[in-house]
């Protein structure tokens, strides 16, 4: 690989890909550094994007593999009474994603990946949504006839 020229736009790695890595895998700063170093050594933008998307996807799958204890009670049983008196600060999910460990941006990346790799899956999702609506309407109708 020939070292890339230091001046101009071409010497900079794809900013969006770097932002994606910083947002989704901030703990993997050395990985981003390695990609930047390889890009400076002459790797293409396509290579950088391929590596970045793979890193994001792998991190998403790794997070889904993690074991998360339920933590129904915060602390030991003996401390339950005091814990109920002082309300712990509740964290608010601002990502808009109901899936644990998957943020809004990751969800968007997964949607794009799914559209590219298995676009047929959207028909299954649409059919499932339609079936859900029909099921809901039927349940409401049964409830009303019984009332």
């Amino acid at each position: 690989m020939t070292p890339r020229l230091r001046s101009g736009q071409a010497s900079q790695p794809p900013r969006l890909a770097v932002a994606l890595l910083n947002r989704v895998v901030p703990q993997e700063e050395p990985l981003t550094g390695d990609l930047v170093e390889e890009f400076a050594a002459g790797r293409s933008r396509a290579w950088f994007w391929r590596q970045a998307i793979a890193a994001v996807a792998l991190t998403a799958f790794r997070r889904s593999d993690e074991v998360r204890p339920l933590r129904l009670v915060d602390g030991a049983p003996a401390r339950v009474s005091s814990a109920t008196m002082v309300r712990p600060r509740r964290s608010v999910n601002i990502t808009g994603s109901p899936i644990a460990g998957v943020g809004g941006l990751t969800l968007a990346v997964l949607v794009v990946l799914m559209t590219v790799v298995v676009p047929q899956a959207w028909w299954v999702i649409a059919a499932a949504a339609l079936a859900g609506v029909i099921f809901g309407v039927v349940l409401i109708a049964i409830r009303r006839t019984r009332a």
Binding site: E28, P30, L31, Q51, A54, A55, V56, L58, R62
Partner: peptide, 11 residues
């Protein structure tokens, strides 16, 4: 080798 895969294995 995907660097992400290498880091996942190293982790």
């Amino acid at each position: 080798v995907l660097l992400g895969a290498a880091y996942a294995a190293l982790d």
